[in-house]
Design a protein around this nucleic acid. Structure first.
Lengths: 233, 233
DNA sequence: CTTTTGTATTTTGTATGCAGCATTTTTTAT
DNA sequence: ATAAAAAATGCTGCATACAAAATACAAAAG
């Protein structure tokens, strides 16, 4: 054991024995991305043979990954008929955002109470980067950092169950929000809310942060609902 | 098709063509029960060969069910080493109850706003049955109805995402609460809170219902934490 | 007696094969 | 030509088979 350590490798390189990522995780990730990015659109049947060939694996591990995604709520299992990418109606999205808002309100409170100063500083840094992308008009990068900030706030709340549930809902919504492009004035408003959020967090003002997070997501609903009505079913 | 309908069966008995439950669902249910009821205790490795033989199925569908449960958070997948029943520490349980409380507060508000009168009456009925079992000292039946009431309140909130997330957390906690036996005085207090809950719901007093639900779960935490400290680890 | 190293056995991970259900196409009768 | 029936095709669901990894065991070295 110690002879390994003596090779001069950095301590951090052996937290766990070097284990190549399991195929299962990779497949779940790939499929999730395909769904989120719209390569597999809602209602599409997941053909096991076809997908397996495409990804270069046999049906067995693929089916396991699909079952995992079914429990995550991204696909729906229809007996004797395989899996289809789940469709979300306007009501579903509204419901999810409603729950998400409640969860983030809780996360905000907890974060104000228990986050360490560096963690808050880290969020400020993410925010600044996001604003730069906003000013540059780079929607995709803006979007990614936006998500990252919300995820990070939940993470520093220190509540694992909260983070997990939040992540699940956020994943489901990614597919929707990926499409939802808001106009310039609403975009500006969203950035303003983010500024408020970070300020409230730095001041460790739980009530205020909680309020802003809730408001932010309620607006998200308004933005999304317009996009969605057109798309219909 | 019509000859089936002419048998005089109630319309509701054939919402879907009679399709025997898929093996997958059955297996997920069986395993879930085994974990909740403690036949598979935390930390136990799920031996696929053994379990498959025990349940009379091959490893393939069993593995798929295990992957499903992994996404649900009941088991943990360790690469090349299979699945183990997840352990929850005191902090984990506290975190889950904290989220659960928030979710039920939301559910209470929504239920007061949108539930139909029959649905509320149904909960009153469940409550009355629960009280009878309480007076008879039947802990198991009491426990089941208690759970059913909470689940039902969430259901009549009309928010599917909320119900789903709530169900997931409740399932994980079942294993814990199954063990948690409280003393007579705390038991009485819990019943009292339930009485308050139903009253608030009948009055459609959202603030009050929300408050009681939150309080109820915070007490649950106190009750459970005592039990858990002993169990350690 | 403890530790280590090589070997055997068990168990997981992936691929393949076969039976049954669903769907589509073809055939047949009106 | 249209509609119903029948055959054919494709896909899913489950079991089995094989490969790789992990664990348990035993012998040898310190």
């Amino acid at each position: 054991m110690d002879e390994i350590r003596s090779l001069g490798l950095p301590e951090s390189s052996l937290p766990e024995p070097i284990r190549r990522t399991a195929l299962h995780d990779t497949l779940v990730g790939r499929l999730r991305d395909m769904i989120i990015e719209g390569h597999l659109s809602p209602g599409t049947r997941l053909n096991e043979g076809q997908l397996g060939q495409m990804l270069g694996v046999s049906r067995t591990p693929l089916r396991e990954a699909i079952k995992y995604l079914a429990s995550e709520g991204l696909v729906e299992l229809v007996p004797s008929r395989g899996a289809v990418v789940k469709r979300f109606g306007a009501k579903d999205v509204k419901d999810m955002l409603s729950v998400l808002a409640t969860l983030e309100e809780l996360a905000g409170r907890l974060a104000c109470a228990s986050a360490r100063d560096e963690e808050i500083a880290e969020i400020r840094a993410l925010h600044d980067r996001m604003v730069r992308h906003y000013k540059a008009g780079d929607r995709l990068e803006y979007y990614k950092l936006n998500q990252a900030i919300h995820t990070r706030i939940v993470a520093i709340s220190g509540n694992a169950a909260l983070a997990e549930v939040h992540g699940m809902l956020q994943t489901r919504l990614k597919r929707i929000r990926f499409v939802g492009h808001e106009g310039p004035e609403k975009w500006a408003a969203a950035v303003g809310e983010h500024e408020e959020m970070v300020a409230a967090l730095e001041a460790r003002d739980a009530d205020r942060l909680s309020e802003v997070l809730g408001r932010h997501l309620k607006k998200a609903w308004e933005r999304v609902s317009e996009t969605l009505e057109g798309a219909g079913r």
